[in-house]
Structures are given as C-alpha cells and as structure tokens.
Design a protein around this nucleic acid. Structure first.
Lengths: 182, 182
DNA sequence: GAACGAAGTTCGGTAAAATGAACGATGGGA
DNA sequence: TCCCATCGTTCATTTTACCGAACTTCGTTC
C-alpha cells in the first residue's frame, strides 16, 4: 500500500465521516479545493503543513491520517470486577481489559458539559471503545444500547456502529481508550 | 508544537537511534543530503513521499515519525495538552498517548488508601505505565522522579525501573494502563 | 424550462520543496 | 605532514505542490 493511497483514503473517509463537503473542508483548512480534490484522488503528494491543516479542520489527531483503518459490551461498575491479588490491603487493582495481540490503544481525556449529545459516526471495523468515568455522570454507548455511568464505572463497547456521548451531570470527565486493529 | 518541529526531531532521533549518519540515511532513502539536513534543522516542509522514503530507510513504521515519543516521562496536567479540535464546545478531548505498533496495553482500575507506599519492582524492559488520576491525590513515578498528581492529571513513565505508588489523600482512584512490548 | 448555488474536477502561474554540486570541518592511515 | 574519506551545511537550479479561476454536474427553486 503506497502511503499516498493510504492518505487519500483516510482524508476521504474522515471527511465524509465528519459530514463535510470537499469545498467546505478546503475552506475550513485554508486550502484550495483543487488541492484537496487531487489529494483524495490519490494524485498529489501532500506536505506536512497541508496534512496538518486538514487534520485540524477535521478535528482529528494528526496521526489519524495515517491509519489503515465480538460485538459485545462490558460494563464493570465500581466495586465490581475481580481484583488482582495484592500484598497490601490498601492497594487494590482490578483488571478491566487485557490487550489482545495486534491492537492499538490510544488514550484520550475527554471533558463533557451537560446539555449536548455528541454522536460519533462509526469508526473502522473492529474498533472498541473503553470508557472510564473519572467524574460526573455520563450516558454512552451504541445508540440503542447506551448505559448510564457514574464516576468510577468502566464500560466497553464496539465503536464501529453509531454511538453517542452525553453528560448527565453539569460536568463530566472520562478517559476514553480507542482500541483499534493494528 | 508545530508538526514540522515534531517531525524534525523524530527524524533526528530515529536516525541517531539507528546509528546512521545523515549522509548514509540520505543515500539509503534515495534523497539528497541537503533535503535531510534541512528537515532535521526544522526548515522545510516535507512531502509524504519524502517521509515515506525516510521511514523505509530507517526501517520503522510510517507513524513513528509523528510521535511525540519521548521515552521518558510525560506529565499532562488537567487543562494541559493539545485538545483535539471539536465542533462542540461542550465536548473537549485531549490525546494523552497514541499507541505505537507492536505494543499491548492492559487497563487496570486501582484503588489506594492513604498510609502505605507500594514499591513496584521493575517490569520488563520497555514497559511504560500510564497513570490517570480519577479521584484523590497520589504520588507516583520512578523512585527518584515521583510526581504529585491531582484528580484529572495524567502521567506516563518508564516501568522498567523501580517505581512507587502512594496515596496522598484518604482514598485515591487511578486508572493504570500497563504498556508493554507485545 | 431557465436560473441559481454548491458540488467536485481540470488547467496555467507561482511559490517552494527537492536536487546536486561545492563548501569547510573533522578524523584516521600511510 | 599530507592525503582522502566522511561528516553535515549552503547555494543555484530544477521540479512540483499549491493556488486561483474557469469548467462541468447535479439538485432546487422560481
């Protein structure tokens, strides 16, 4: 896979995922339409600055443009889960998720305020999302399978279907781990 | 951090790590020495093909050139970190750590009480520990480089040296992500 | 049906990235 | 000491990525 084809597809994928037109993205990124058009066509050979502008306009991390791209959910409430053996009673650990080979896990801190729902378009096939609520209350999950989580709860669900995030308390802080095929 | 400076450092870091001279890398990658020289100097604005050639010549995955990858410790306080742009002001996300290929990340929830220090023996070479404080205050890190963290803080450090965990508040809840070579 | 706006695709001009040769600096080896 | 290989940098030239405007489609509206 040539890197240009990779990026061409990534740009197109992320753009459509974001629901933006080519013209709109070009304007947002401060690029010429023609530039974007050629990039998505797999022609051209974009520079770093160009890619940076695109990633910014799309609201995605820079590295997303280079990604090649069990449908079960797991919910572990505070106090649930099997503890990992520890010598000290003042130190209890619970394994929430072990990492299968051939996967990558990107870690995000996400702050949410009450009143708006963030709908996320499906991520690439095989993506999992691990959500840990640090503070506040949130409602997250696949659109028809959302869970209400309190501080300390852990929830895992598939990210390759439409899903949503919503703060139920005034503010909420969650750790989001995007788990995708390597 | 401008992406060009990021890449400039990444190229230099990976090249020296590989023990290659600038000239040798240029020849191997099929680029002009001058091109590489300027790139490492933080001038220039490389194209994808140029970066691809460099990554290939270095024998590293393409994405390595975009990593913040200081294998040392990284501390991101609440409110710090470069946010991922979002259309919604009520939803802010920060990328704390992207996942390099060939690594596994196990996720733990850890509860700590005040009064005892947990000393951890070194883990296998190459292990990283990601610590996110959900509640309370903790002191963690390599024994001579501990950091005091408040709720919401994120801290990453190498786990292949002796390190310790200690709760500074009555209770503390942290998410621990053990990041080890696959 | 004509008129309009927004979609994405070509096409010359220009700023700039990549080249290749020349440069001074450094370090062995004969 | 001299020679010469190799290091990384600098500079004129060539190549090309990006821009802006013109163009083609495709829906929508009057």
């Amino acid at each position: 896979m040539t890197p240009i084809a990779l990026i061409a597809r990534a740009i197109h994928r992320e753009r459509t995922k974001a629901g933006m037109s080519l013209s709109a993205l070009a304007k947002q990124a401060g690029l010429a339409k023609s530039t974007l058009s050629q990039l998505e066509a797999g022609l051209g050979n974009p520079s770093v600055e160009t890619l940076w502008a695109i990633a910014n306009a799309l609201g995605i991390p820079f590295s997303f443009l280079f990604e090649t791209a069990n449908p079960e959910t797991t919910l572990i409430r505070v106090g649930e889960g099997t503890p990992v053996a520890s010598d000290s009673s003042s130190f209890g650990a619970t394994l929430l998720a072990n990492c299968p080979p051939g996967r990558r896990r990107d870690i995000y801190r996400t702050e949410m305020k009450i009143g708006s729902v963030r709908r996320a378009e499906p991520h690439p096939q095989g993506t999992l999302e691990h959500v840990f609520v640090a503070a506040g209350r949130v409602r997250v999950g696949p659109v028809d399978l959302t869970e209400d989580l309190n501080a300390g709860d852990y929830f895992r669900f598939v990210g390759d279907v439409a899903h949503s995030y919503e703060a139920l308390s005034e503010k909420a802080l969650v750790i989001l781990i995007m788990d995708s095929p390597a």
